[in-house]
Amino acid sequence: MSHTLTVEGLATHFHTRAGVVKAVDGVSFHVDRGEVLGLVGESGSGKTVTGFSLIGLVEPPGRIAAGRILFHGQDITALPEEELRQLRGNRIAMIFQDPMMTLNPVLRIDTQMMETVHAHAKVSNAEARARSRDALGMVGIPSPEERLSAYPHQFSGGMRQRVAIAIALLHRPELIIADEPTTALDVTIQAQILAEVQKLAREHGTALIWITHDLSVVAGLADRIAVMYAGRIVETGAVVDVLDAPLHPYTAGLIGSVPSRNKRGTRLRQIPGMTPQLINLPAGCAFRTRCASATAECEADPPETFPAFGRAVRCFHQQAEAS
């Protein structure tokens, strides 16, 4: 049986005046029905560009330079724009990072929801409105009927993100890409929304790609995890496996920098250095300038290895199992 989504060797490059930005450079992963994949990495590692690539919304000067994106086995990179449009918001939905910016400030909520219904279903206005109201109710917005005729600025950030989620849910998509949807929100609201989305995804059997820079979010939510660094996925595996025994030095560094109960009293270890510029990135392991285990060997590209069932790593000197 094919996966809901399979990504093979995806490369998305931006051709800027200063040079080619290889924002995504040879990324492969897959998600299944009802599964939550956490896509983790520091800011600037190419997570958002990966997300946009999946729904065909990379804009010039960017373009998909290589790779395949198989949705139920069909390569959607080759689809004409109109067929892509029919997928977007219908079978594949996306939620953005900043809820203050994603809704159009001068259109009412009902307009913005009903147009989404009409974009993919030939239904009456009344029916579109009813569906919109139900979706609002589903994401926990009180008195949805009244809120429909409000404008975005009358909602708080958390409420706006719920509206965005409701819009994403309108057509019961098979795949939702959530791009750091809780990063901009308060911790308590973040937790509520996490729980809500997890529940809805489970109920509907939706495949969910949850993008975040925050390992602790992924820990409680995802089934599997893919760690991204400088446009590449450096490690994948089941959440428990990866968090218990990271094989890539970068993953280990990320885990070390997360505060947690059992490490109380010890110093948090920050990864030294900064995310590299993706412009004119030299060959070899992009992490080597910050890596404690780096050797001369690392000036070549590390190959992908599969040390255990369901795991993949790109590193010459994988961390000892019991770190």
């Binding site: 946009f52 919304l57 977007r88 953005f96 913005q112 989404t116």
Partner: peptide, 10 residues
């Protein structure tokens, strides 16, 4: 908001 509108399939 433009990108989101496109992501909705408009």
């Amino acid at each position: 908001y433009v990108k989101f509108a496109r992501a909705k399939g408009l």
